[in-house]
Simulated scan of single mutants.
Amino acid sequence: MTALRVGMIGCGAISGQYLASFDRLASLGSDVTLVAVADLDADRAAAVAADRDGVRALGVEELLAADDVDLVLNLTIPAAHAQIALDAIAAGKAVYGEKPLAATTADAQRVMAAAADAGVRVGCAPDTVLGTGIQTARRAVDDGLIGTPVAATAVMLTPGHERWHPNPDFYYQPGGGPLLDMGPYYVTALVTLLGPVRSVTGRSSRARDERTIGSGAREGETIGVTVDTHVTGVLEHTSGALSTLIMSFDAVATTQTAPIEVHGTAGSLAVPDPNRFDGTTSLFPLGGDGWQELPVSAGYRDSGRGYGIADLAATPDPEEPRAGGALALHVLDVMESLLRSADEGRTITVDTTTERPPAVPLSDLPGQG
């Protein structure tokens, strides 16, 4: 594994999960080290630094210019992802960002082109697909336990984030909606399991034009809805498999106990929640009499957000890391193409593609499997 010194920009709520992963990786002997943090709220960055030995709080520009930062961890809001990534690349830094890679496919392509020109690497969440949940399902597919994959279903239903989120406005404005919010987890898992997507056909709808905030200081306040809140579509993988995707802020519940199911000529898989790193994979083989829980057989054990950075460090250059920019770009393109298909009422060919990421062997630390 290559030693990698990380500077983190953005110290909001999600940063806590990354900090916990840095601690776990260090306890396992990883050479991925957090050395600096920055945030528009200087006090918030100072509080993180004060709690961690060897970490200093800097301004954003100071962090980007710091000689001891090899990789910038970009935990800013989605609208800022592309610009922070471009600034880091211009400074000669590798980049790893929270999903999505950028607010638009066009911006993500700019990031990838700049990284290629500068000779630096790009990684991007979600890295949940590197955990034992999705990777055990991937191992079952690779081992032929379901025969030839034919189809998959991926379902995420919720009546809406305004029921619990005190400031849910973003979810109902351009750039929000159920697909762009939660779709990265599901589409990344589907590409990991079945390979890249070559075309999409989508439809979308909106149950209502207003939502009422259900908690916090703004409880009872009404906000407008300007995006479709139910998106469904079919993804045609280059392998020929067809995935049906349903992402909704308008529905209540589903009897489908597995968020993702993969069906093949010799069996079906129930795949765990792609927003988690672990979970149970079950198999119903052709001719069987029920679901069989599969033992954990692949993936990084007890992993968490940020393991994609360690995987990047353990992946020899110029190989693409498993949670790499090329995959994140393709996933974003798939989602934007699906929304465009729904808007235009026609099948859309996805312009980008990617290699199906290599499987993760069962291990505790990237590079040691």
Rank of each mutant, 00 (worst) to 15 (best):
T232M: 15
T232C: 11
G233V: 06
V234A: 13
V234S: 12
V234D: 13
L235Q: 05
L235M: 12
L235H: 14
E236Y: 12
H237V: 08
S239P: 09
G240R: 05
G240E: 15
G240M: 15
A241L: 11
L242D: 09
S243T: 07
T244E: 06
L245M: 09
L245T: 07
I246Q: 15
M247V: 01
S248P: 00
F249I: 00
A251M: 15
A253Q: 08
A253I: 00
Q256D: 03
Q256P: 05
A258D: 13
I260L: 13
E261M: 14
V262F: 07
V262Q: 12
H263P: 00
H263D: 06
H263C: 03
G264N: 14
T265N: 07
T265K: 15
S268L: 11
S268D: 09
A270H: 01
V271I: 05
P272R: 03
P272D: 04
D273K: 05
P274M: 13
P274Q: 07
N275W: 03
N275Y: 09
R276Y: 05
F277V: 00
G279N: 12
G279D: 13
L283R: 00
F284M: 09
F284V: 07
F284S: 00
P285V: 08
G288R: 02
Q292A: 13
L294V: 01
L294S: 08
V296W: 06
V296F: 05
S297I: 04
S297M: 11
A298K: 09
Y300E: 03
R301I: 05
R301G: 10
R301Y: 08
D302G: 02
D302Q: 08
R305S: 04
G306F: 07
G306M: 06
I309C: 07
D311M: 04
L312V: 02
A313E: 08
A313Y: 14
A314H: 10
T315K: 07
E319A: 13
P321K: 06
G324A: 02
A326E: 10
L327H: 09
L327Y: 12
A328C: 14
L329H: 00
L329I: 08
L329T: 02
V331Q: 12
V331A: 15
D333N: 10
V334F: 07
M335W: 05
S337R: 14
L338N: 11
L338A: 10
R340A: 13
R340W: 06
S341E: 08
A342C: 10
A342V: 03
D343F: 05
D343C: 02
E344Q: 15
